[in-house]
Design a protein around this nucleic acid. Structure first.
Length: 871
RNA sequence: GCCCGGGUGGCGGAAUGGCAGACGCAGUGGACUCAAAAUCCACCGAGAGCAAUCUCAUGCGGGUUCAACUCCCGCCCCGGGCACCA
């Protein structure tokens, strides 16, 4: 017997066997129900971190559990391999992005394999390989054909010093992350995906995603931002050339009688048309130039002071027929609605602040019944939206409530031909052009005579050229590669130029779950029959940081791909689990700043000191593990010291999956200790398996009390662990139940002086099966050591017998007036009357009941007695 | 400001309206050992009491109920997301 569990040997052994036997390979199998378990694939940054360990441990328990429950489980893994860090590594270290990325993938694949994860590696996909990104291009062309991909001018973040566009995440407080220059908006031609086509379906779909966290759905609904209102024209008081009216969108048509001015977005082309030839023109142009130079984030902050300038032009309020001035205002967004608003200072806080600043009249049209408001003394806009407010100064609509007037004014607008009801979404089309190298080339050719021409399908993939100089300066790196840019027009054969922008890397991850269904399919991005078998993903696991971006894009792609006829799925992910962050306390030294855990010497008791200078290390907040705060634990060290099973078990036990997981060295020790306890328990009893084969005879009708109790514990544990995993993925309580089970087994062993019997054997086998999704290597090894020849992964999950979970003696707590006073041990088959009689006969209960009137006797079946007394 | 979460021992965390604190960590005591480590066993919310036991206790204040961590109303605090979207 080996007393010491040698995790490294055992883990390597089983990882080798699983790989050799291709244990986790899966194909479509109509004789079994399917289950598609997916965790968000990683960006190959170089090494895995604890967050990866956590998410992949969660996914692996689910996959292994479902496999043992008889499902055909698709559990794939791959690499989200395009992206900026590779390009930055090239700029900083001179390593080509493809080399850097592939090296990282090789290293990280090895790290993942050492965690013992049950992936079907034959389905591995890598998004930077032409075999994958070819289909990004194929889908782009299909989208282009259907008008779902189009090109338009739009504003992007531009760094004047680096001469390049920056992604939003590269803009830090309005400045370029590399050179600290102020970022300015710049108008450029960009490719867009028309996600807004699906805005309504994406919104409606939220209602059916009942297995998604409510906060993710809330974020998506909020992001789509549907508003129902009215679009209508405000005629100009004096028409300018062919411009007769300004169209606005409002959700507050009920306040239209209070519109005392209008505001245009600075970017609106109407501004120039209105000011041409007026004395205000120069000042307005200066204002517009100044505002549009400002960074978006700065400009749209709520605290930002409202600013504007009068154009010199007037419009007519179509309801009051009053002349109202037209202003340009910094807070009006060109991209939303019509880029122009009617301004109602009395009932909109922004307009109120604006009107106060520039001395524009305020006209009250909704009165507060609780507290009469006066135009002159108004201190803030009255933004009542419910039936409480009543309309005043609103002609025929005066006296109506806000909701009533919204409907009636909308009707009136439509009847009079002034405008129509409209729906507006906050959601914008998705700009996918990136002036970057390490991404999918956009498969478009520009021809002087034929214009924008798609690359013919047969010519895909448009391969990313190698050995491209990357400086981080200038426009798209591909634009400098003449051999790439120069091509011929597929239509007329004349010399033409390729599009040199690449696609946003979010495109790659928007459909990878479909590719896993048929990863080697050569004619389509996904083989419809296979997608029909596997889709949708039954369980998706990943971080909350993708609540909107990736998860919304993936939903959009699924619908678009469905409309191409490649899948029947309407939604990609049936159920979503968003796991919490892995956190750890931080340490700082006054000389050496943030300290790695390995920079610390000392202990929790004595306090911690900086290894470099011996000064006390100050303990900081518990924060998400990050390189910048240095509060990181390298999974490689963890796995080396304690093994993958311990790393997995700790990740699953220390907190429920959706909550943050606070790192604890002691907690890791605890997980390790538990596995050691299991090892010693099972190693110590091997004999019984050889001596007595399990039969029904020695299983059932055990005379000794302890064996009956052990069987009860066994079957209760099966029930508890199964329900905890199945219901809410409560892995922490499932592990707790396994710990109790092991504690019980030790107790049984001590009580029976180690005597083996069928019940004990059943318990040990059950333990190993229940433990196997959590600690697969240890479970498999002990399974083999107890004389089993077929691998544990091929066994079915145990089922409990309900009858065996029932005790024949019950402990019934007895309360008097809701307070616990005694406990009764009674046979399980006693009736309510017997139990109530026994309760009243109980001495301790008697003392509390004596001399009082019994008002009521409550009995909860097999659970509790409550005697209610008075006096 | 709006929308989501969440407040339970020294700590991480358990509890279909029914014995609050499972399980783990830390701590205390014991066994084993020449000793230590490892391991095994026991105790472990606060207060009072020699003890049996009693009282208090799930952020605060009300309410519903025989019974509330759990349901309802009103607050406080913490975390996260969104936010000039007309």
């Amino acid at each position: 017997m080996e007393r010491q569990y040698e995790h490294d040997k055992v883990e390597q052994k089983w990882q080798r066997i699983w790989e050799e036997q291709q244990t986790f390979r899966v194909t479509e199998d109509t004789s079994r129900p399917k289950y598609y378990c997916l965790e968000m694939f990683p960006y190959p940054s170089g090494r895995i971190h604890m967050g990866h360990v956590r998410v992949y441990a969660i996914g692996d328990v689910i996959a292994r559990f479902k496999t043992m429950r008889g499902y055909a489980v698709l559990h794939p893994m791959g690499w989200d391999a395009f992206g900026l860090p590779a390009e930055n590594a090239a700029i900083e270290k001179g390593v080509p992005p493809n080399v850097w990325t592939r090296d990282n993938i090789a290293y990280m694949r090895d790290q993942l394999k050492r965690l013992g994860l049950s992936y079907d590696w034959s389905r591995e996909i890598t998004t930077c390989e032409p075999e994958y990104y070819k289909w990004n291009q194929w889908l782009f062309l299909k989208f282009f054909e259907k008008g779902l991909a189009y090109k338009k001018r739009s504003f992007v973040n531009w760094c004047p010093s680096c001469e390049t566009v920056l992604a939003n995440e590269q803009v830090e407080e309005g400045r370029c992350w590399r050179c600290d220059t102020l970022v300015v908006p710049k108008e450029l031609e960009q490719w867009f995906f028309r996600i807004t086509t699906y805005a309504e379906e994406l919104l409606q779909g939220c209602d059916r995603l009942t297995a998604w966290p409510v906060r993710v759905l809330a974020m998506q609904r909020n992001w789509i931002g549907k508003s129902i209102g009215v679009e209508l024209d405000f005629p100009l008081a004096e028409p300018v050339a062919d411009l007769l009216a300004i169209r606005i969108f409002t959700t507050r048509q009920d306040t239209i009688f209070g519109a005392t001015f209008m505001s245009l977005a600075p970017e609106s082309p109407l501004v120039e048309r209105l000011i041409t030839g007026r004395p205000q023109a120069t000042a307005v142009r200066e204002f517009v130039a100044r505002v549009s130079r400002q960074d978006k984030a700065v400009r749209t902050a709520v605290e930002r002071e409202k600013e504007g300038i009068f154009t010199g032009a007037y419009a007519v309020n179509p309801f009051t027929k009053t002349r109202i001035p037209i202003w340009v205002a910094n807070f009006v967004l060109y991209e939303y609605g019509t880029g122009a608003i009617m301004a109602v200072p009395a009932h909109d806080q922004r307009d109120f602040e604006f009107a106060k600043k520039y001395g524009i009249p305020i006209r009250l049209v909704i009165q507060n019944p609780k507290e009469t408001l006066h135009e002159a003394s108004l201190e803030a806009a009255y933004e009542e939206q419910d039936a409480a407010g009543k309309l005043i100064n609103s002609g025929q609509f005066s006296g109506l409530t806000v909701p009533e007037s919204k409907a009636q004014i909308a009707d009136f607008v439509e009847q009079q031909g002034l405008g129509r009801r409209t729906v507006n979404y906050r959601l914008r089309d998705w700009g996918v052009s990136r002036q970057r190298y390490w991404g999918t080339p956009i498969p478009i050719i520009y021809c002087k005579t034929c214009g924008t021409v798609p690359v013919p399908e047969a010519d895909l993939p448009v391969k990313l050229p190698q050995n491209v100089p990357l400086t981080g300066k200038g426009a798209s790196p591909l634009a400098q590669v003449e051999s790439f840019v120069q091509t011929t027009c597929p239509k007329c054969g004349a010399p033409a130029r390729r599009e040199t922008d690449t696609m946003d890397t979010f495109v790659d991850s928007s459909w990878y779950f479909l590719r896993y269904c048929s990863p080697h399919e050569a004619h389509f991005p996904v083989e419809p029959a296979k997608a029909d078998y596997w889709m949708a993903v039954d369980q998706y696991v990943g971080g909350i940081e993708h609540a909107v971006l990736h998860l919304l894009y993936a939903r959009f792609f699924t619908k678009a791909v469905r409309d191409l006829g490649l899948t029947k799925a309407d939604e990609p992910f049936t159920s979503l689990l968003t796991q919490g962050m892995v956190t750890k306390e931080t340490y700082r030294c006054e000389i050496h700043a943030w300290l790695f855990p390995t920079d610390l010497i000392g202990s929790d008791k004595e306090g911690w000191k900086c290894k470099h200078c011996g000064r006390p290390a100050e303990r900081g907040r518990v924060e998400k593990m990050s390189k910048s705060k240095k509060n990181i634990v390298d999974p490689e060290h963890l796995v080396g010291a304690y093994g993958a099973d311990t790393a997995r078990l700790f990740s699953l036990f220390a907190a429920p999956p959706e909550k943050d997981l606070e790192w604890s060295d002691a907690g890791v020790e605890g997980a390790y200790r538990f596995l050691g306890r299991v090892w010693r328990l099972v190693e110590g009893v091997q004999g019984i398996f050889e001596a007595k084969p399990q039969t029904q005879d020695n299983l059932g009708q055990q005379k000794e009390m302890t064996s009956t109790e052990l069987r009860r514990l066994t079957h209760r544990t099966i029930k508890k662990v199964t329900e905890d995993i199945d219901r809410e993925f409560q892995f922490n309580t499932a592990v707790a139940a396994l710990m109790e089970f092991v504690n019980g087994l030790y107790k049984f062993q001590a009580d029976t002086k180690g005597a083996g019997n069928g019940a004990f054997r059943e318990a040990i086998e059950t333990l190993l099966k229940l433990l196997s999704p959590f600690a697969p290597h240890l479970a498999e090894e002990l399974w083999a050591r107890t004389g089993h020849t077929e691998m544990l992964v091929h066994h079915r999950w145990p089922t409990h017998e309900e009858a065996l979970t029932k005790a024949d003696v019950l402990t019934i707590p007895v309360q008097v007036n809701g307070k616990l006073r005694s406990k009764l041990l009674v046979p399980a088959d006693w009736t309510m009357e017997q139990i109530l009689d026994a309760s009243l006969a109980d001495a301790k209960v008697g003392e509390w009941v004596k001399g009082k009137t019994i008002k009521k006797k409550v009995y909860v079946e097999k659970r509790l007695v409550n005697i209610v007394v008075e006096g």
